[in-house]
Every structure is written in C-alpha cells, then in structure tokens.
Amino acid sequence: MTHAALLVCPTSGKGKAARMAGTVAASLRDAVDRLDLHVGYSAGDTARLARKAVADGVDVLVVLGGDGGAHLGVQACAESGTALAVVPAGTGNDLAAVLGTATVADVVTALRSGSRTPFDLGLVSNGTWFATVLCAGFDSAVNERANAMRWPAGPRRYDLAILAELAALRSLPLVVETEHGVEELDATLVAVGNTPNYGGGIPICPDADPADGLFDVTVVTAVSRTALVRMLPTLRTGGHVEHVAVRTLRAKSVRLAGDNGWVGYADGERVEELPLTAECRPGALTVVSA
C-alpha cells in the first residue's frame, strides 16, 4: 500500500496551485492507496503541515507549488523515510525540472512504477537543507529583488532583476574554503550547486549532479559591469564557465566568508549572512522522479 500526502501551496504561481489542486488530487488518488490533503496558506503553515505528514508516516509527500514550497518539503523529508515528489505550479520550478516531473502525469507514472531515487542535499551551518543551489553576492541581491517583484512571471522576472542589480555592481572580498584549501579573492558572486539550475532555469553550475556526493562551485571574480553584461547571455547555456573571470571547483563542503555583507540564498530562499558553511550529504533525500 502507498500512503501519500498532497501538500498544496495555493498562492504559488499567483493562484495556479489552487486552481490545479482538485485535478491533481484526483490524478494522485488513482495512483496511491490513500491520499491525505493538506493546504498551507503561509510558509509557516506549509512547513508545519509538511512535518506533520512525515510524522504521520506517509510514504510520499507530494508538493503542489513552486520552489519555495518544495524547499519546505525538503526540510521535512530530509533524512526521513518519506519520499518527496513535486508537481510544479510556481515561478521557477527548478527542483521539479531536475526531477523530470513537469506535470502531475509524470508524478503519477513514477508512483505507479514504484520508482524511488536517492538525491544528495546540501546542509547549511544553520540547519537549513537545500536541494538545488546556494548563492551569495550578485546572485542573492538578484534573488531579493526578484522575490519582491510582482511582474513578470517566470524566468523573465530574474532577467529584469539582473539588469536592475547591475547598476549597483561591485566586487568584494570573498574567502572560499574547501577540503582542498583556501582561496581569497575579489568576487562578484558565488554559487554552490547541488543541481545545475537556479532562477528559473539558469545553469549556473552546469555540471552539478545530485547523485555524486559533491558540490559544483562557480565563482565569478572581479569583473566590470560591461564584462558582466557580455557574460549574461552565456548564463542561459552554461557557457559562462569558459569565461576568464569564472572559477569552478568541486568539493564535499564549502565555507564562504569575507568582509562583504553578503547574504546566502538557498533554493531561492533567504538563509543567513556570511560566513556560512554548506556540506553535501549524499542520498539525504529520497525523491520520486521521472
């Protein structure tokens, strides 16, 4: 028997999740033996309901929402016996993209096949788990701006936020410490990738693999505004890693510090100011993937 819970984040996608909820629930009921329904009307409520579902011993927690809701599902399901599935209904949907679940039909097919896959997670020093990318610097400033914007929806929101933040661009001191050593440099941004994409499909760490037990780290060092503008189109293809100003490395753990006032964002959510440490935990999550 498969006992699942559907956690609906009704405000995701400007109400898209609420409009989809009935259809999604009906589809899931055809694929599981029991389905509990939870509706979270705030981040705190969603987090509480996710923890409750896991405590109730459900086999699968299905999140209907965007990356914010998925992030809360990750917090509850990490290192538990409950697998996580995501039906995308948000703005970026980066975790659903890497899981290959573009629709509820994809989740239903995976549930019927009984497919379960181990998935690495990042664990931040303040106890927050992340599934996709942790970033700081220009990235996190873009995140703060994009999260405050009401228009447009989707990846274009991040594109406009990037352009807006260029006006305040400046490089600042960054310390990157891994098991391989310490690097001190002036940097524009740093991204610690468990998966390739953030910001609605931008492959900032194009070779990151959530099954290899390692982070891929991308650092954009000191660059002029003009140079960064010229680099932006390559972000959509992953070609930015070939730029002379970009440094990449792989590590099991990363400590980010420096006199820069940067704030770390993980899965698009504000985490804490630097310094912070992120550790890759292999197979810490079980996922339902297509």
Rank of each mutant, 00 (worst) to 15 (best):
E165Y: 07
A167W: 13
L95I: 15
H240A: 02
C135W: 00
V271S: 07
F119D: 02
L174I: 08
V98C: 10
G181R: 06
L95S: 06
V244N: 03
G137Q: 04
V32W: 04
D45G: 04
R170V: 09
A53Y: 12
A245H: 09
A251S: 14
F119S: 00
V107F: 14
N93T: 12
T226A: 12
A187D: 05
R250W: 06
G57Y: 11
R281N: 01
V229G: 01
T248M: 08
D45R: 13
D186T: 11
E279F: 02
P203G: 04
H243S: 05
A43G: 09
E269F: 06
T109R: 15
M20Y: 02
H3V: 12
M149W: 04
N147Y: 04
L123F: 07
R19N: 00
V86H: 13
M231N: 01
R236K: 12
D212A: 00
T11G: 00
A245F: 04
Y198M: 15
E165N: 15
A50F: 14
V182L: 08
R230Q: 07
R51S: 12
V229P: 00
S27K: 14
N126I: 11
T109W: 10
V107S: 09
A284L: 05
D56H: 11
C135V: 13
V60P: 03
A146D: 03
G199T: 08
G92V: 14
A136N: 09
A76T: 04
P196G: 03
L276W: 15
S113M: 10
G15C: 02
T286Y: 01
A47F: 04
V87N: 11
A25V: 05
N143A: 15
W262I: 09
M1C: 03
V63D: 02
T195G: 03
S113C: 09
K16Q: 07
R225A: 12
